[in-house]
């Protein structure tokens, strides 16, 4: 049932009904969270979770892709990236509340051997900075979600958000500088 519904909502979304996001996001959230749990605690029992892989896997599992236009796939990636942000932030906030300043959990970024790590606080501060940026330039926030939380390429981002590649590039440069400054202050 979830699959048909998500597919249907995605079609409605693609045909211009942006209101369905309110319905779509919680569904995708729930499903992706389940998938993340399954990856980490289910049979496969991986020790790390690849966020970009999760976004793609979500598409395969949640959307009846035989029944949907190709461009809807790109839109889905955009939505899934946003959901990924919510999932990680929710976890971070929950963990943070539990730890109450104790040992901070580490989230591995980028390269495999954990050479670059960011802590919970970083995730939360990026999220809070994004909330401020959203008031100034919403589209830039979507670009950051796609690139950072969803791990989408520039091209995928451009398709996910229906904007041109140069626009993605420009938004990304601007948002990155702005966030950098916010995070360092």
């Amino acid at each position: 049932m979830g699959k048909a519904q998500i597919t249907k909502l995605l079609q409605d979304h693609a045909s211009g009904n942006r209101n369905v996001l309110d319905e779509l996001m919680p569904l995708v959230y729930e499903k992706m969270q389940q998938m993340a749990r399954f990856r980490l605690f289910g049979e496969s029992n991986d020790h790390i979770l690849n966020t970009n892989a999760l976004v793609h896997e979500a598409y395969l599992k949640l959307v009846d892709f035989d029944r949907i236009e190709w461009q809807n796939r790109d839109h889905f990636f955009g939505i899934a990236s946003q959901v990924m942000r919510n999932i990680l932030v929710d976890y971070a906030e929950k963990q943070n509340a539990q730890k109450r300043g104790g040992d901070l959990q580490k989230v591995t970024l980028g390269e495999k051997d954990g050479s670059k790590e960011v802590n919970l606080i970083d995730i939360i501060s990026i999220h809070q900075a994004l909330e401020r940026l959203e008031k100034i330039d919403e589209r830039q926030v979507r670009v950051v979600e796609c690139r950072f939380f969803g791990g989408l390429t520039i091209k995928e981002t451009s398709k996910a958000l229906d904007i041109s590649i140069p626009t993605v590039n420009r938004d990304w440069k601007m948002a990155r500088a702005w966030l950098n400054r916010e995070l360092s202050s």
């Binding site: 790390i48 989230v107 360092s184």
Partner: peptide
């Protein structure tokens, strides 16, 4: 700020189980 390194430079690719 543009010239500085940023945590955003690498997509948040992997997340540890413990998280």
């Amino acid at each position: 700020a543009h010239e500085q390194k940023s945590p955003l430079d690498h997509p948040l690719q992997t997340v540890k189980k413990s998280f």
